[in-house]
């Protein structure tokens, strides 16, 4: 029987399959051999351990990164709050007289009537207290300067704030518990014309003038008042939250 073409084909395919099977067998044998040979090989377990630990590390890095993101976001909002608070604090500090202020206004100078005292000395009925500026004159003058619309006031460099007191010990005038000496210079920031008119047509300035005290008032285009250097004591008072 003469071999046909398909016989050749089948033979070739069989041959190829046989080769494949042989290779397959060899491979699986070899792998078994290798596996047994390297069973105790620590290198592989090293590598496997290391792969596990690097995966753990990567996970930890992920967690840390999100933590840091959170912190940074918080910080940004904290900074916003901080800026707002600081702005508010600056504003309140200004109103509390804790910041130097500049502006137009007036200067009032009250001085003892030295000339009058000299002339009256030795004469009968001489009363030295009639020729000196008393704490009340300064106190009432400051009240009138406030009434005239002053925004900020200082007496001999002592800023007038809410708890400021003006009094005397003997012949010495104290403002904010600081000793002052004549002449007493009251500086006020505000509308110069308005302040001047109110003071000149008020009570205190004309009456001191009538008593022959050397008093002076000048308009100022720009004066600078120092900050209040004292403290705001709060041992008994508690702020009350407004219903907001």
């Amino acid at each position: 029987m003469k071999p046909k073409v398909w016989h050749i084909w089948v033979a070739m395919i069989c041959l190829f399959s046989g080769m494949l099977m042989a290779w397959q067998f060899q491979l699986s044998n070899a792998s078994k051999a290798l596996a047994t040979e390297r069973k105790g090989d620590s290198l592989i377990s090293f590598i496997e351990d290391m792969e596990k630990s690097t995966a753990d590390l990567e996970e930890e890095i992920g967690v840390l990164r999100s933590l840091i993101d959170d912190l940074q976001n918080k910080q940004v909002s904290g900074q916003d709050e901080m800026t707002n608070l600081q702005e508010e604090l600056n504003l309140i500090k200004g109103l509390a007289g804790m910041v130097e202020v500049t502006g137009p206004g007036i200067t009032i100078i009250l001085d003892d009537n030295v000339a009058g005292a000299e002339a009256a000395k030795g004469q009968p009925g001489y009363k030295p207290e009639r020729y000196i500026i008393h704490d009340k004159y300064v106190l009432y003058m400051v009240n009138e300067v406030k009434r005239a619309g002053a925004e900020a006031i200082a007496v001999n460099g002592q800023r007038i704030v809410t708890p400021s007191d003006i009094r005397c010990v003997g012949t010495v005038i104290l403002v904010n518990s600081t000793r002052l000496a004549p002449p007493y210079i009251i500086q006020a920031i505000g509308n110069p014309e308005q302040l001047e008119q109110a003071i000149l047509n008020g009570v205190e300035f004309p009456s001191l003038k009538a008593m022959d005290f050397p008093v002076k008032l000048t308009r100022e285009s720009s004066i600078t008042l120092p900050p209040y250097k004292g403290s705001y004591v709060q041992n008994h008072s508690q702020p009350v939250k407004e219903g907001r």
């Binding site: 904290g78 608070l85 604090l89 509390a96 809410t162 508690q238 009350v240 939250k241």
Partner: peptide, 29 residues
């Protein structure tokens, strides 16, 4: 952030003190 918290609460108490002293908030005592 903890320093920030401290700073914020410090500013807030300072602010409260000044607001109380300048009459911007009601006060009791």
């Amino acid at each position: 952030s903890s320093a920030g918290m401290v700073a914020i609460s410090e500013i807030q108490s300072n602010l409260n003190r000044l607001k109380t002293s300048t009459g911007l908030v009601p006060v009791k005592g």
